[in-house]
């Protein structure tokens, strides 16, 4: 899909119609967000037990008097029926009140502010690694299509996606942190080191593990996109004009074929952030994935809702952006559709 649309003409905006389309698409996000947050809230309500049963030791909870339990329930607004609670939550959200984590009483916004940068940092690093590695290897593979190197890359890429990620991570810790002692086993910083340089050694392993396991996909995409481009008329023209092979490949092929790859990569960022739970767990990374996991399991409504809202928004935003870009670049897309 993407490939077809992007290989078409560039910079071809269809003025007013396009602007309308864009606005419509962006507005379309809002009902989606409402529906999805409602579904998530409802799912949370369906999970067995309620936040109180996770707030304290079950034996201690069972010892509480009924009035104490009732007071606790009231404290967390669990007395209202589910619909009312959802709309109350929505109302507060619209007023900019994101609520407090039920476990610690800390404002949700503060938890997000603390955790999100860590996850973003890791995700961006992994994206960079996989994009650079993947596109360079993919393009090299395409240029030397069929060579031994190309085949080795294909097989290696396949192995990369076939090993369970946590297993890969644990093995990496075993080798690089415990046997060779090159890198720390986990965590994000040394105490009192806030600068980026001080953190790099902590980031290397998780970013590489995450990045490498993503590289194969990018590589495959870059390779076929490059092959596609190499068959295009203007490349043939360039070749026929007697330009050196490397220039044809580099300047014309590489550049053009990378555009869809970059879109693909941008599309992946939201999923990457939501999907980093496993790696964050393996490497004790203080990010948002592990926070989400425990929040779901302890029915920490406010936290789950805000994180889910964030993930969903990012996903929707990315896909809308892709839609709009596709429409902008590909005249075949019907703008009224």
């Amino acid at each position: 899909m993407l490939k077809r649309s992007f290989a078409a003409s560039f910079g071809f905006l269809r003025g007013e119609k396009m602007a309308k389309y864009t606005v419509k698409k962006i507005l379309g996000i809002i009902p989606m967000l409402l529906i999805i947050t409602f579904i998530i809230y409802w799912l949370l309500d369906l999970t067995p037990g309620d936040p109180i049963s996770y707030l304290m030791d079950p034996e201690a909870l069972a010892r509480l008097s009924e009035s104490q339990v009732a007071a606790l329930r009231a404290q967390y607004g669990l007395d209202d029926p589910f619909f009312i609670r959802y709309f109350k939550w929505l109302g507060r959200l619209l007023q900019g009140d994101f609520g407090f984590s039920s476990a610690s009483g800390v404002p949700v916004i503060q938890i997000m502010a603390e955790r999100l940068p860590a996850t973003l940092e890791l995700a961006v690093a992994a994206l960079c690694i996989s994009t650079i590695l993947g596109s360079v290897l993919g393009v090299l593979g395409a240029i030397n299509k069929g060579s031994i190197g190309d085949n080795v890359l294909t097989v290696a890429g396949m192995i990369g996606v076939s090993i369970p990620q946590f297993f890969f991570g644990v093995c990496a810790i075993l080798i690089f942190a415990l046997h060779l002692e090159w890198l720390p086993v986990g965590g994000r910083t040394d105490p009192e080191v806030v600068n980026f340089v001080g953190r790099i050694k902590y980031m290397i392993m998780p970013a590489l593990v995450l990045g490498i396991s993503m590289t194969a996909g990018v590589m495959r995409y870059a390779r076929s996109s490059m092959l596609d481009t190499m068959n295009k008329d203007y490349i043939k023209t360039a070749r026929s004009k007697g330009l050196p092979e490397w220039r044809v490949n580099l300047v014309h092929g590489f550049r053009v074929s990378l555009t869809p790859v970059i879109v693909l990569v941008g599309f992946r960022l939201p999923t990457l952030i939501a999907g980093s739970v496993v790696i964050e767990t393996v490497f004790q990374w203080p990010g948002i994935g592990s926070a989400f996991n425990s929040a779901v399991r302890s029915q920490n409504y406010n936290l789950v809702m805000m994180l889910a809202l964030l993930f969903v928004f990012m996903t929707l935003f990315a896909s809308t952006l892709v839609d709009i870009l596709t429409a902008a670049l590909d005249p075949r897309v019907k703008l009224n559709g």
Binding site: I36, I39, I40, P48, V277, V296, T315
Partner: peptide, 21 residues
Amino acid sequence: SEVFMSIPQLILVMMLVAILG
């Protein structure tokens, strides 16, 4: 289908596991 695809998969899975057991 868009609704289902907009919820990050692992998140949906985690919630459903908590509900269904």
